[in-house]
């Protein structure tokens, strides 16, 4: 039984290593404890070493820094061949990433290059017998499926970022004695099939729901765009990102990247506030993995309460300012 556990870690320009990358490393360590297989991490970019310091070395066999000016910004036409060319020589057993927007774009192409299937959006990953078992949502999030790989190596998986079940506090693996570091200069594809030519920025870059440890999500209870300012205020107190149900995205009160659910993003934060959200199956599908859910809804029968630990039956316009106040009192 040989082969290695390869982890694709994502950095973020100013903030350093993504939070979800840390959770992913923990999942890899756990797997390494179960299997005895070494974990190796791959970091890519123009200067990937800048994130290297933050990578917890414990249990990590090696960090591969794949470096090139062509890897400055994420572009699948450079990232996929670069990642593939490095990983194919590492005898991979499992290749793991997060289903962030980058992971979602990169991994299917990489799987095609390896000519193997992959499983996306895993909530749980365990070693059983000689193989790998994963759990993921299916049927519009109403059910869960346990899946295993039956074909050729490597097994390729992406995990729901910050998936609560993956994050094992204080998990310490001890396979590696010391972490090796290796730098690889990637020779960019001079004639890539496609090219990233421009990045159009938003005026204010907000915390992404996929990266956040807490999310404040608003639903149809909110009547105007300005009402989201109230949610932003609450989010600021909690260091949370603001999310939304499809109903408010469809009516243009919130932007598409905020949408959580079946046709939006799948998140698994530690804390999730569902404010004036009814709890339709398609919404629940995207936030079911959250550790603690607080629901505020004026209808006591709303299905969202079936998925919440804490519920307040009431009007969001009355309750939310009070919560902000209670949190402010706490600070002061």
């Amino acid at each position: 039984m040989n082969g290695r556990i390869i982890v694709f870690l994502e950095g973020k320009k100013k903030e350093g290593l993504k939070k979800s990358a840390r959770a992913l490393l923990k999942a890899a360590w756990l797997l390494s404890q179960q299997t005895g297989k070494p974990v190796e991490a791959v970091l890519m970019g123009e200067d990937p070493k800048q994130y290297g310091e933050e990578v917890l070395r414990k249990g990590l066999n090696c960090i591969h820094y794949v470096k090139s000016a062509a890897l400055k910004d994420y572009d699948v036409h450079q990232y996929a061949p670069a990642f593939f060319s490095v990983v194919k020589d590492l005898n991979p057993w499992v290749i793991m990433g997060n289903s962030t927007l980058v992971g979602k774009d990169l991994f299917p192409r990489v799987a095609a290059m390896f000519s193997v299937p992959m499983i996306s959006d895993c909530q749980k990953i365990t070693f059983e017998g000689p193989g790998l078992k994963v759990v993921k949502a299916c049927f519009y999030g109403k059910k869960q499926a346990e899946l295993s790989f039956t074909g050729n190596l490597p097994y390729i998986v992406t995990l729901v970022p910050n998936s609560a079940e993956v994050e094992i506090e204080g998990q310490e693996a001890a396979v590696a004695e010391e972490t090796k570091e290796r730098e690889i200069e990637y020779i960019a594809d001079e004639k890539p099939k496609g090219r990233l030519v421009e990045i159009i920025m938003k005026e204010t870059e907000k915390q992404d729901v996929l990266e956040a440890e807490a999310i404040v999500a608003g639903g149809r209870a909110l009547k105007e765009k300005a009402d989201f300012l109230l949610l932003e205020e609450l989010a600021e107190k909690l260091d949370a990102a603001v999310g939304a149900s499809r109903a408010v995205v469809d009516s243009d009160l919130a932007s598409p990247e905020m949408q959580i659910g079946q046709s939006g993003k799948t998140v698994a934060p530690k804390l999730y506030f569902a404010l004036g959200i009814s709890g339709a199956a398609q919404h629940i599908a995207g936030m079911r993995g959250s550790k603690v859910v607080v629901a505020v809804n004026k209808d006591k029968q709303a299905p969202v309460f079936d998925y919440a630990q804490y519920g307040i039956v009431g009007d969001v316009y009355q309750i939310v300012p009070e919560i902000i106040k209670a949190l402010t009192d706490l600070d002061g």
Binding site: K143, Q144, I312, I319, A326
Partner: peptide, 29 residues
């Protein structure tokens, strides 16, 4: 193929919700 569905099951129910009563200020605290 290459992937086998071992089993499909209903997603686990969470524990019953704890409802917080009282007027907004108290409930928020």
């Amino acid at each position: 193929c290459g992937i086998k569905v071992e089993r499909v099951f209903a997603a686990p129910e969470k524990e019953a919700c704890k409802f917080i009563e009282g007027e907004p200020g108290k409930a928020a605290e």
